[in-house]
């Protein structure tokens, strides 16, 4: 209804009648919008913290004190009979003992500190999420842009290929790939990237197709601007906004997929700590120490929510219609 107050085509004019205006680009506006949205701010904080933690773990022993590091791997000193295994978090007691400050979140079936393993699991999650999304996004964007711009048989062949990749449910596809090439983390990343390709190919292709028809592209063509210049100055920059949104959301999705793979026994192999694998291991001990199952899930949930909130915020900032 508010549409009727502002004429079509003039809607962006709101507030611009005052003569004192500095050059404000669309992206700056979008960014301001983003900052105003509390959910996306929260998302940014979560992602910031998670990334920071992941970065800190790479500096290893120097930052994290020896005790954490010592319990990082399975140590023979942590004799299961010593009662250090499957401890609950602080304030809770189970048949193996009471939670204590040495292991604030408790210990796992081998007596390793859950908090430390969670912290180290962050690295894998963030690394895999970003890497797989990055590779998939790059390949998908290139394929989609080529497909959309050239059209014709190139488009046909690429689209058929992408469509059939899409027709195999992505978890199944990664599993099939890993059964062929091995169950290591690297293959998992490649596999997840491949399943990510169709998402971006479809997105960027439809974007390119619609941007290609925009009048400003036609205007550039009519002005005699070279094709190459049109692609790089007009088509690509104007097609990328939804890619940005999707890639943020996709990091979350990919973190979930990698966690699922680890849970199924693919991907990260023990003893390297990863959240999905911790969940898999916890299954046998659910009755005695359910906390072992709860913590890694919360870690995944919080991280993925962070990316989702940021992605939703970005989408609202770029296209205000998508929300309210």
């Amino acid at each position: 209804m508010s549409d009727s107050t502002v004429p079509a085509g003039e809607s962006t004019r709101v507030g611009s009648s005052t003569e004192e205006r500095t050059a404000v680009s669309r992206s700056a506006q979008a960014f301001r919008q983003l900052k105003r949205n509390s959910a996306s701010r929260a998302g940014l904080y979560v992602i910031g913290i998670v990334t920071l933690v992941a970065l800190l773990t790479t500096i290893d022993a120097d930052i994290f004190d020896y005790q954490f590091a010592a319990t990082f791997w399975y140590h023979p000193e942590n004799d299961p009979s010593g009662g250090e295994i499957l401890l609950p978090p602080i304030g809770i007691e189970n048949e193996f003992g009471a939670g204590n400050w040495a292991h604030p979140l408790g210990t796992d079936h081998r007596g390793r500190d859950i908090l430390v393993r969670l912290v180290y699991g962050t690295r894998i999650a963030v690394q895999v999420g970003l890497l797989a999304t990055g590779i998939g996004m790059t390949l998908g964007t290139v394929i989609g842009a080529v497909s959309g711009y050239y059209g014709g048989w190139v488009d046909d062949v690429l689209q058929r290929f992408v469509e059939s990749l899409y027709a195999i449910p992505f978890l199944i596809l990664v599993i099939a790939i890993m059964s062929a090439f091995g169950r290591e983390l690297g293959i998992a990343i490649v596999g997840v990237s491949i399943t990510t390709i169709p998402v971006f190919t479809r997105l960027i292709r439809s974007q390119v197709l619609s941007v290609r028809e925009m009048e400003y592209v036609e205007a550039a063509k009519a002005a005699g601007v070279r094709d190459r210049h049109i692609i790089f100055r007009h088509i690509i920059p104007n097609s990328l906004a939804p890619v940005l949104v999707q890639s943020t959301l996709q990091v979350g999705v990919n973190i979930l997929i990698v966690a699922s793979l680890s849970f199924l026994g693919f991907g990260v192999q023990p003893p390297t700590p990863s959240w999905g694998q911790m969940l898999a291991q916890s299954r046998q001990y659910m009755i005695v120490n359910p906390w072992f199952s709860i913590w890694p899930g919360i870690a995944i949930l919080v991280t993925v929510i962070g990316f989702n909130m940021l992605g939703d915020g970005l989408r609202d900032a770029i296209d205000p219609r998508s929300n309210d």
Partner: peptide, 12 residues
């Protein structure tokens, strides 16, 4: 062009 908004690249 007809549409003065659509015929100008919003990013330039």
């Amino acid at each position: 062009f007809q549409d003065p908004q659509a015929s100008l690249d919003p990013r330039m």
